[in-house]
Amino acid sequence: MTGVLLPAGTLLWREVVRFCRQRSRVVGALAQPVLFWLLLGGGLGASFRPAGAPPGTGYLEYFYPGMIALVVLFTAVFATISTVEDRQRGFLQGVLVAPVPRASVVLGQALGGTTLALGQGLLLLLAAPLLGIPLTAASVLAAAAVMVLMAFALTSLGLVIAWRIDSTQGFHAIMNLILFPLWLLSGAFFPGPAADDLPGQRGGRGRGAAARHLPPGHGTVRSPGVPRRYPGGPPEQPLATPHFEPPRCPGIVPLPPVSRRR
């Protein structure tokens, strides 16, 4: 087992060290969501009240979980750009001639991105009380578990794409095509169309409905009315998950469909 874990662990650690050494990446990754939050939340907050939200929930609070999802999403996916860079700069060739199973190379890269995304997500999550959003140990743990699943799935998606692309420009172009629809339609930003209203839906009321009916006041923050599906999109995407509550369905983090098709 060490034959797989030692190389995977070392590649994970390298990913984290590299990230921390590039101050621009750290600053960018943290500043971007905060900027979005302030600009969009401040701009839209006055005129927008999320449908079905408990009285007194402002847009900034509504958007906070979405912002964490955004950080996890972007950090996880863009962490895999280092695969493209490693190939261009030559680091990957040294890894490929080492007596290491390919699975541990992929695992190391996927776990590296997951670690970065989780770290940033947790940082933001733990800042929530500063903004008056209460947290409990249970809600933090549950949210962390959801973030791990999201981050791992998204890093894996990023890797599937990065493995085939030989330029960082190409990677950005393709990833933006995938990321922005995922993010905007996830409900993290604004409530999407209710799941019940979409044609051809099975199951009727989904998690959004469940979230709406959770008793308030136990320290959870809920994004109400989260759509679980969108037309033509993947079933049960976890991208809207930052309800700070345990995931109802462990199967909600499948490998994204792009990786299935490829």
Binding site: L6, R18, R89, P99
Partner: peptide, 21 residues
């Protein structure tokens, strides 16, 4: 080059050694 310029000399060797067990 196959070294990682963002790592120190010793770190590069350590990661490489791990790949060889």
């Amino acid at each position: 080059a196959s070294v990682d310029p963002k790592l120190t000399v010793a770190e590069n060797l350590r990661h490489h050694g791990h790949l060889y067990g």
